[in-house]
């Protein structure tokens, strides 16, 4: 079992945590503002598809990444229009949206890229060691020999904490999800706040989807690539008590569950079936939930449209 404490294992865990964390940060803001985005699965899938499609067509990974974020920002806005402006039921829209995205991405993949979609070069997410810091024993390899997305998240996560709890913007977001009617009566434009949060959620989910293609799938887009990671993001957001710092901790645990397959041979011998490792993140989420139990600090207006 000693390979479970090796730097290699935890470095993989941190790397695999990045896409989940990125999406979960957006979802944390959305849920804090009262929008329960079951459709995050679909948002991530459309981001993954858009990133792969644009990268393959343009030959540039950066263009693909930006295009994915832009497209899912628009989709997040459309999703917001349904659940925020039209006051549609959030669970129902999520289920419908995920069905549509699954169908549309599979359809477009076969029609536009019948020979398959492989991103030309994934060097954007190659590991880049930070000089000096990466020389720290163990910790250096785990934290400072990572891809650019991980480094971006070292910055984004503290920013998310700061914005959510220390700025007026964060206060507006939390007011929109915790006492929305009171906030609305006080003159806060709850609908506008929720719409912006959905655009943010879409953007981050799309970027996360793009990262999934590059990091988890080695640059190849396959149908239903996200395969439930969006639901993991939902679970993570909720049992991390809607706090970005806890979300980050939870994401690394999911990454570790994902990374188990890489050390399987060394840790458990070769005879553990792959299905067990594929199951691991979901089992972890369920276990974590049973252990953590009921959350009492849920935003009171989570999942509730503003009828005012």
């Amino acid at each position: 079992m000693h390979s479970l404490v090796e730097a290699f294992f935890w470095a993989s865990a941190v790397g695999l945590a990045a896409p989940i964390l990125l999406a979960a940060l957006g979802e944390t803001f959305a849920q804090r503002a009262g929008v329960f985005t079951i459709g995050i699965e679909g948002l991530m899938l459309s981001g993954a598809f858009a990133a792969a499609a644009v990268s393959v067509s343009s030959g540039s990974l950066v263009v693909g990444f930006v295009a994915a974020a832009a497209i899912t920002a628009a989709l997040g806005g459309m999703y917001g229009a349904a659940v925020v402006l039209c006051r549609a039921d959030q669970v129902v829209v999520g289920i419908g949206f995920n069905l549509v995205v699954l169908g549309a991405t599979s359809l477009l993949r076969r029609q536009l890229f019948p020979t398959g979609m492989t991103v030309p070069d994934t060097s954007l997410v190659d590991r880049r060691a930070i000089p000096l810091l990466s020389d720290i024993p163990w910790l250096g390899r785990v934290l400072f020999d990572q891809n650019l997305l991980v480094y971006a998240l070292y910055v984004l996560t503290p920013i998310a904490v700061y914005v959510l709890f220390r700025t007026r913007t964060g206060l507006l977001v939390r007011a929109a999800g915790d006492g929305a009617e009171a906030a609305s009566a006080k003159g806060i434009r709850v609908l506008r706040v929720r719409m912006w949060v959905m655009v943010l959620n879409g953007t981050l989910a799309g970027a996360a989807g793009a990262a999934l293609v590059l990091i988890n799938s080695g640059g190849v887009f396959v149908d239903n690539l996200v395969d439930g990671r969006g639901y993991l993001v939902l679970a993570l957001t909720m049992f991390a008590r809607w706090h970005p710092a806890w979300v980050a901790v939870g994401a690394v645990l999911f990454g570790a569950a994902d990374a188990l397959q890489f050390v399987a041979q060394a840790s458990f011998g070769g005879d553990v079936p792959t299905a067990v490792f594929l199951m691991a993140p979901y089992l972890l989420a369920l276990t974590a939930w049973v252990v953590m139990g009921r959350r009492s600090n849920a935003p009171t207006d989570l999942g509730r449209p503003l009828l005012a």
Partner: peptide, 14 residues
């Protein structure tokens, strides 16, 4: 592609 069905089924819900 047959996954067209999901698009046609999901849209009315939304």
């Amino acid at each position: 592609t047959a996954s067209l069905a999901y698009v046609v089924e999901g849209l009315p819900i939304v």
